[in-house]
Design a binder for these strands. Sequence first.
RNA 1: GUGGACGUAGCUCAGCUGGUAGAGUCCCGGAUUGUGAUUCCGGCUGUCGCGGGUUCGAGUCCCGUCGUCCACCCCA
Length: 435
Amino acid sequence: MAENTFAVQSVRGMNDVLPTQVAGWQRLERVTRELFTAYGFEELRVPIVEHTALFKRAIGEYTDIVEKEMYTFTDSGGDSLTLRPEATAGVVRAAISNGLLRGARLKLWTSGPMFRHERPQKGRYRQFHQIDVEAIGFAGPDIDAELIGLTARLWRQLGITRVKLKLNSLGTAQARRVYREKLVEYFRGHESLLDADSRRRLEGNPLRILDSKNPDMQALVAAAPLLTDHLDSESREHFDGLCAMLAGMGIDYVIDPRLVRGLDYYSRTVFEWVTDALGAQDAVCSGGRYDDLIPQLGGEAQPAIGFAMGIERVVELMGQAGAVDAPLAPHVYIIASGERAQRTALALAERLRDDLPTLRFQSNMGGGNFKAQFRRADRSGASLALILGDTELERGVASLKSLRDESGQTQWPLPDLAARIPAILADLAGPTEAG
RNA sequence: GUGGACGUAGCUCAGCUGGUAGAGUCCCGGAUUGUGAUUCCGGCUGUCGCGGGUUCGAGUCCCGUCGUCCACCCCA
């Protein structure tokens, strides 16, 4: 590859978010921040890089993420570090190492880039972004229901409708161990029917076989023993409680006994919001309970639950739902012709910004004749053009022209502008925007 | 990591069985003296992703490579 090409190409799977796309990101960030605050969650910011061992221990040695998808490197001090592939491990680590856990109940959220070395696809990137929510110190199922209720509210606020909630319980680690043995036994009995992927998983992560999309495997999977039938009684009760609460909140869900997660730390409640609008990358937001993780990482045992949503995926859904705001147009576009007028216009713009801080003034930059400046004014979407030329300068006035209707052009002494502009804008806006 | 499709002006694309690139759009200027739509006229921009090969000659064929997209896989 030529060196130039190399230099101007972004790294595979790592994308720029362009100004035209940013509106969706900002809307999602704003709505989630308000929602989290309203539910009593506090923001926590954690590093992007952690010790490799943290992720191995939290996510599990035999998961796909740890086995083949992590960006791991040795720093110049000889430490093995990893670009975080998910957020929970870092949040839990931060809670432990800052001593936040002692008897506390933590409701936290964080967001930022995550890194996974996968083959890029629509909705799947090597650097992608998540908004992550964690509730530590709550045994549930009330908090489980609240978290799910929060996400359901978020979709409503964003105008997203093409999502469905899938729900399952993985039981406790002990119950899962028993089930796992049963499952391995079952699949060993039919080993000749297993595809290559499934045979590989039989050792490391047999539960994932249940997730197989291979049509040839469906019959075998369908007849496999169900985790749901092997739940311990406490998990059963917990899960039934959650279902009842969701029903009481009017939240629709589908119980999917084969919903398992790709991260080992989950136990009991797992859930996933899926969509049919993003092709194969259908998970928009998912999470679950991780009651055993904190002691595994050296903290004092605390039940906990969390979820993460993929910003790129949610923003894509927002775009499809038409839920992205148009960029804010200036209220006033300032046109100035001639050197003296341009100087006057800059000073005038600053004064108007002082006097009218809630309005958006855009000054024409880079000169141009009146025609060009009016064209830019029009394209800017501004409601009003403020015109400053030789004629106006001589008389100490500025012209104001409506760009959105035919109400014409008026002239005002410069000192009066700050008082006149809001009134004129209000007239232009008319009754529709009066509220 | 596996399989498949694709990669031509900023954008959307055309370019037949190989003969050294074109449209629309965008942008800029003009259509009587200081006024944004539309229309008309004129103008600008391309290492045809990159590298190599075949050929007298390649955007068009072959190989490699990078990237995008789709499916698998995985997951947010």
